[in-house]
Nucleic acid binder design. Structure first.
Lengths: 383, 383
DNA sequence: TTCGTTTTCGGAAACGTTTGCGGTAGTTTT
DNA sequence: AAAACTACCGCAAACGTTTCCGAAAACGAA
């Protein structure tokens, strides 16, 4: 019959049930259980990656030595190192980043959470992040919240589970509670906010000059002779919305123009929403003669609608928007905007985060405001 | 003085050099080296993440049991499992994905290489990829080649180093050699191409109906009465460029319109390049009366230029483009296009890749062509 | 020489999981 | 009551690195 794997005896072998599909046996002599292993045929595996151990074996040295050679440790003989490196390149060795990360406790990966990758602004930011990160030897992992708080929370969890070294985040419009951020911050995860920031926590932040931008745009309309300026504001929950609205209010106040509640409309990033606002304003006994759109896309929509209604821009209605994209210069009339640079913003944010990661103890979070620029186009210039 | 750590003797202790900043000693009695360890003060560490071992300890069981409970193994008592899960959630345990990946040999991560994230087409594809990947429990790691072959190769290497389970790639316009792809393919890495594919390798691919799209667009121009149709083609190296050019040629041939070399211009995705083409055409003794732009962005540029030159669209010059974006419908005159869906393309590609990953052995690569749709707008309709 | 020093390397533990396999105990079958 | 079976769990190896610590050897100085 079958022999015991330990004592080799073929007697005193008792059956002892099935386990994992195999017959289990028990040797009464040496009191040991065992199963019989089929000599599983050598299925030719798909060529495992070369490891540090392979190199060590092929040179007859210890893996630790190989590791030291490859990592530029000082405690190694120059000639030994050279030889190891030679063999390593010859065998086309690639370090296993998973093992490295597990051991070192850092992944050299940045996590990014944005509302939507398809918005040109965020795509630009991402590009900026990628550039800086890559140059600094970091990888980037991106998640979209799709403007949902729940998804955003999941995103953060997923990134943390992937053990990213730090987090770059621009909040969803829904997000009003920041527990998910506070939790990770408390655990020591470096976090940097950009654009849609959160004032409840002490993180480094990079934002646009929201207040100033709106102020300048509003002032521009005033100087063009507008007397009744409406504002298409963003979601009430977003800090940037509030800042921009405040810039608008400040400009009005500064020029002694009364603030009218009926000329303020809060949108919610819903398609066609700004048209409701516009419709409301046009039905007012006293129509506005200028519009500030806190998001340039709303301005675009309204321009289209105004043209449909044969309302002349800018003579009957001047219009300006916050943020710049190709389309703003191509639409007719072209749109006056407060121009900013998403790409740069991404770069700055990434740099901040990497600083934070590297100098975890000494890092001082700060708020950086990015200056924009008023670009005057046809939609607001009254001859 | 100091006592030997082994025999405790305080005599026969000799100095034995410095090592890593600490005094090294040698006990002659028991022939042992040692250094004196300061009773390093307990610096309160930043709250390590809970591990499976912590749970095991707190329950007095083995880590393997915890693992089995959490992974839904059958070989575990229901009540034990329940208790483990209770403690795990209570301690807010999060599995270390690095350790899991290292052990299982898979990261549940898809690598994506695209030319440029800021191009709306690719942003759309990415969004589609993300959606499908997330739903299937995969993460996504994105790299940009910036249309550089060298960068693309580095991207692939970086993603492989991160041990992604598969690769989604749309080649840079520079890429004519595909060794970097072949290499990984040979190593068994699942790869799926999209949009800018490569015919030299046997991978699953998802592309647009490039030929058919161009054919339909060209045919549309012909039916609108255009006799001399110019084409603003893409880079010669790109397969999609060739397919689209062929569609154009086929339509001409089918309607008995002679092909004129001077009406074919290959752009290279360089800003303002299409204007050179346009300028050339307008200086021809016999100007074209219709233009097919193989990339809608070129069409936009040309529309702007034509308007500057006071050339009427579409009566003097009809124009159509491949690909659709918001701007195509907003520009005046609005642009007739062959519409496609980047988002869906991304989704399909991701699904293919995940299929490939899961059914590595049985997976049959196939080419999927995505039907587009002719959207007729003002730029081509001659009353 | 004998001790002190420096350089260079190996062994082994550690990072946090998963998993193959064997052990124990209790239950059922002959 | 021995034999066969089942259910459950622990041990230890494995994944591929890095790093702590000690050992050996070579070298310098007294």
């Amino acid at each position: 019959m079958t022999a015991c794997t330990k004592c080799g005896s073929v007697e005193n072998i008792l059956k002892s049930g099935f386990i994992r599909g195999k017959q289990r046996l028990f040797c009464k002599s040496c009191e040991v259980h065992f199963t019989i292993n089929l000599p599983q045929k050598e299925v030719n595996k798909p060529a495992r990656q070369i490891t540090i151990v392979d190199i060590a074996k092929s040179l007859g040295i210890a893996p630790s030595t190989v590791s030291r050679a490859l990592n530029g440790s000082a405690e190694i003989n120059a000639s030994t190192r050279q030889e190891i490196i030679r063999v390593a390149t010859e065998m086309d060795y690639r370090p296993n980043l998973l093992a490295q990360s597990l051991n070192r406790g850092e992944t050299h990966t940045l996590g990014v959470v944005i509302p939507n990758i398809e918005r040109p602004f965020f795509a630009g930011v991402l590009a900026g992040i990628q550039k800086v990160a890559t140059e600094a030897g970091y990888r980037v992992m991106i998640c979209q919240s799709n403007e949902s708080h729940a998804t955003e929370t999941l995103n953060v969890q997923a990134l943390v589970a992937s053990r990213v070294d730090g987090l770059l985040i621009s909040h969803s419009k829904e997000t009003t509670s920041f527990e998910h951020i506070k939790l990770q911050l408390k655990k020591g995860l470096p976090i940097v906010h950009f654009d849609r920031v959160c004032n409840e926590v002490e993180t480094a932040k990079v934002v646009q000059e929201d207040f100033e931008g709106s102020y300048i745009l509003t002032e521009h309309l005033i100087l063009q002779g507008c007397k009744r300026i409406a504002v298409c504001a963003g979601p009430r929950e977003l800090i940037i919305s509030i800042s921009r609205l405040n810039g608008y209010k400040a400009a009005l106040a500064n020029y002694g123009i009364p603030l009218r509640e009926e000329l303020i409309y809060h949108t919610n990033f819903i398609q066609g929403e700004s048209l409701l606002a516009l419709d409301g304003w046009l039905n007012l006994p006293q129509k506005p003669d200028g519009i500030l759109a806190v998001h340039y896309a709303n301005a675009i929509d309204m321009i289209v609608e105004l043209k449909k209604r044969k309302i002349n821009i800018p003579s009957e209605m001047a219009i300006v928007g916050f943020g710049d994209e190709l389309i703003a210069s191509l639409i007719e009339p072209s749109l006056t905007v407060y121009h900013h640079s998403p790409f740069q913003m991404g770069g700055i944010a990434a740099k901040m985060l990497i600083d934070n990661i590297i100098h975890k103890d000494t890092f001082q979070p700060e708020l950086q405001k990015m200056k924009g620029k008023l670009i005057i186009r046809q939609s607001s210039v009254r001859q």
